[in-house]
């Protein structure tokens, strides 16, 4: 029973990673340039190979961003950045 459970888990994880690898190959060849402006400037072969393994794992996140048409990485939200952003947004609203 335990062996069967372990088997199922590995089959599920293997399926997820197989799908991910298929996506990752397309992503490193095409998608990465659309998602990240720095990659649009230059994306060497070594860089594309370096991001392949994690693209295989994090493919749902990358696929969602790619499909949503985002062309920039998300903005980090630290207390200072958020406070500065909300202040400038309020000013814009006032204007």
């Amino acid at each position: 029973m335990f062996e069967q459970l372990v088997n199922w888990i590995f089959v599920a994880v293997g399926g997820y990673l197989a799908l991910g690898l298929g996506f990752a190959v397309v992503f490193v060849l095409r998608g990465v340039r659309e998602l990240d402006p720095t990659a649009r400037e230059r994306a060497s072969v070594g860089f594309r190979l370096a991001i392949l393994p994690a693209s295989t794992v994090f493919w749902p996140l990358l696929l969602r961003r790619w499909l949503s048409g985002q062309h920039e990485p998300p903005e980090e939200c630290s207390p200072h950045r958020c406070a500065a952003c909300s202040a400038s947004c309020e000013q814009k609203d006032v204007v």
Binding site: V32, L35, D36, T38, A39, F47, A50, I51, P53, A54, V57, F58, L62, P73, P74, E75, E76, C77
Partner: peptide, 12 residues
């Protein structure tokens, strides 16, 4: 696997 700066920017 996420040690490249691309992942730093992508994940924030």
């Amino acid at each position: 696997a996420t040690s490249h700066d691309f992942w730093l920017a992508t994940l924030t």
